[in-house]
Amino acid sequence: MATVRDNPYGAYNFLVEVDGVTSAGFSEVSGLSVEVGVIEYRNGNDKTNSVRKIPGLHKVGDVTLKRGIIGDTALFAWLRAVTQGSADVRNVAIVLLDETHAPVLRWLLLRAWPSKWEAAAFKATGNEVAIESLTLTCERIEID
């Protein structure tokens, strides 16, 4: 699905697909990352006085989704199920869209589950939208 072109895509057209959730419009997605650990190793009889660097285990960053509070509690119900001991892991896709809203790149979060939910900060004199955030932990990220 990845489409190559000269100009980069805007970061403002995207959608989030969560298994089992039909209403999942978000205003922000952050934290999409993978990091490979470094193992430093050196034999005592190595001729150079420096360590070798070997790729180690990789870890996937937590992904935070933010959206305006709209009264839909499906994502909170997913979190509640996890807090009550359910191993409710799901696949999640973050899909980048082009200017015509056609999909151009898809990041797959495999075996994801909610690890944190945060409500909006309420302020009587504020002039902002009430935003909730959901942090997802996953085992692997792939690009489709």
Score class of each variant (00 low, 15 high):
I69D: 08
I70P: 15
I70E: 15
I70G: 11
G71F: 11
G71I: 12
D72K: 00
D72V: 03
D72L: 01
D72C: 02
D72G: 00
D72E: 02
T73Y: 10
T73L: 14
T73E: 06
T73A: 14
A74Q: 14
A74P: 08
A74V: 06
L75E: 12
L75Y: 08
L75T: 07
F76T: 11
F76S: 04
F76Y: 07
A77P: 00
L79P: 11
L79K: 12
L79G: 13
L79D: 08
R80D: 15
A81Y: 13
A81S: 14
A81Q: 08
A81D: 11
A81W: 06
V82T: 07
T83S: 15
Q84S: 15
Q84C: 15
G85P: 02
G85W: 00
G85T: 01
S86D: 15
S86V: 11
A87W: 05
A87L: 01
D88E: 12
D88I: 02
D88G: 03
D88M: 10
V89H: 09
V89K: 07
R90H: 06
R90W: 02
R90P: 15
N91S: 14
N91F: 08
N91P: 08
N91E: 11
N91Q: 02
N91L: 06
V92A: 02
V92K: 07
V92N: 03
A93I: 07
A93C: 07
A93F: 06
I94T: 02
I94Y: 09
I94A: 01
I94N: 02
I94D: 12
V95I: 09
L96N: 04
L97S: 01
L97A: 04
L97G: 01
D98N: 06
D98V: 03
D98K: 01
E99R: 13
E99S: 11
E99T: 04
E99Y: 11
T100P: 01
T100W: 10
T100A: 12
T100R: 09
H101N: 14
H101Q: 10
A102V: 03
A102L: 10
A102S: 12
A102C: 14
A102N: 07
P103Y: 03
P103W: 07
V104T: 12
V104Q: 11
V104S: 04
L105D: 00
L105E: 02
L105G: 05
L105A: 06
R106C: 03
W107F: 00
W107R: 03
W107D: 04
L108F: 12
L108H: 14
L108Q: 13
L108D: 12
L108R: 05
L108N: 10
L109R: 03
L109E: 00
R111E: 02
R111V: 00
A112C: 02
A112K: 00
W113A: 02
P114D: 02
P114G: 01
S115R: 05
K116H: 04
W117H: 08
W117E: 01
E118T: 15
E118Q: 14
A119L: 14
A119T: 04
A120D: 08
A120L: 03
A120G: 06
A121K: 05
F122T: 12
F122E: 06
K123Y: 13
K123M: 13
K123D: 15
A124V: 05
A124E: 08
A124M: 12
T125K: 01
T125R: 04
G126R: 04
G126E: 06
G126C: 05
G126Q: 06
G126M: 03
G126N: 05
G126H: 05
N127S: 14
N127Q: 13
E128C: 03
E128M: 03
E128Q: 13
E128V: 08
